[in-house]
Design a protein around this nucleic acid. Structure first.
Lengths: 152, 152
DNA sequence: GCCGTGATGTTCAAATCCGAACAAGAAGTC
DNA sequence: GACTTCTTGTTCGGATTTGAACATCACGGC
């Protein structure tokens, strides 16, 4: 039986989605590298930690949040630790557990990088969309996110 | 002066966008690897070539289309060449130019992988959105894409 | 024609990501 | 308590990406 191919509208939607993401990702990497010597994954890690209770999070939870594999997170936390932006700590409630803790230097680094980052996200995405469009996009993305997270 | 931070709605939109893309990308990689031993970038290359005049394209143009760096494309074309899915040819009109040409084996490989790929894109994104949502998302993505492409 | 500027594609080292394999601890069952 | 199963985080090898440097060729002005 023949698969249901994508029609022109659907193809356009998919293609625009993928291309735009990659282009935006590039611009973001460029900005973060210049402003604070960070990669996007690293920046995302710092953001989550800064928003977390006591500025710390379990490795697995953090990996889920930033959508990274466990090994990728291990690598990035090691890098951030070398840079003095994050520290590892034992988890009191679980002997196996490791906590990633944001240091003061990490917080300052984040504060230095954040304004320029937000600027880019605004300039190329957020500020170009109406409130209506923004809401629709969020709804759409959430549907897909839920489906993907629940099916694994 | 203080930057205009993202409010809750904007932050939700941005976060949903990034997370969803990464999750979907993972699922796509998984499907393509299982179905045809391809990565997503490789699949995208085959798709463009299959749609191009004479199933061939200049390296630079192809790189722009799939949003890859020149060196990344060189690497992937080499991989696809080893697999017999693509061949390199001299460009008649430009002595420096290189043409990537889709082989018959490449076409067959694409035909084998495509149905399952479309299935995933449908199941997690396209079929979950109304025609209205689809259109809004495309418009939104295009605005950003244009802005990013024109500014570099 | 010649020179300066740009474009094209490749190469290289370094950084990063992934997945599988692994050791260690938690959690549930009997 | 002993056993099985699951979870946690790391390690390792291999694959991929990036950006800079490079050689080659195209193109415009003069």
């Amino acid at each position: 039986m023949d698969p249901r191919w994508l029609d022109a509208t659907e193809k356009a939607a998919w293609h625009a989605f993928v291309s735009t993401f990659h282009l935006l990702e590039r611009r973001i990497e460029e900005q973060l590298k210049a402003a604070a010597g960070l990669t996007h994954p690293q920046y995302e890690i710092l953001v989550r930690l800064s928003a977390a209770q006591d500025r710390q999070m379990r490795m697995t939870e953090l990996a889920r949040d930033v959508v990274a594999s466990k090994s990728a997170l291990t690598y990035q936390i090691t890098q951030l630790e070398k840079a003095g932006l994050v520290e590892r700590a034992h988890c009191p409630s679980d002997e196996r557990g490791v906590l990633a803790v944001l240091t003061d230097a990490g917080m300052r680094c984040l504060e230095r990088a954040a304004p320029g980052h937000v600027e880019v996200v605004r300039a190329y995405l957020i500020d170009r969309l109406s409130r209506e469009e923004l809401h629709t996009m969020t709804t759409a993305m959430r549907k897909t996110e839920r489906a993907l997270r629940s099916s694994h």
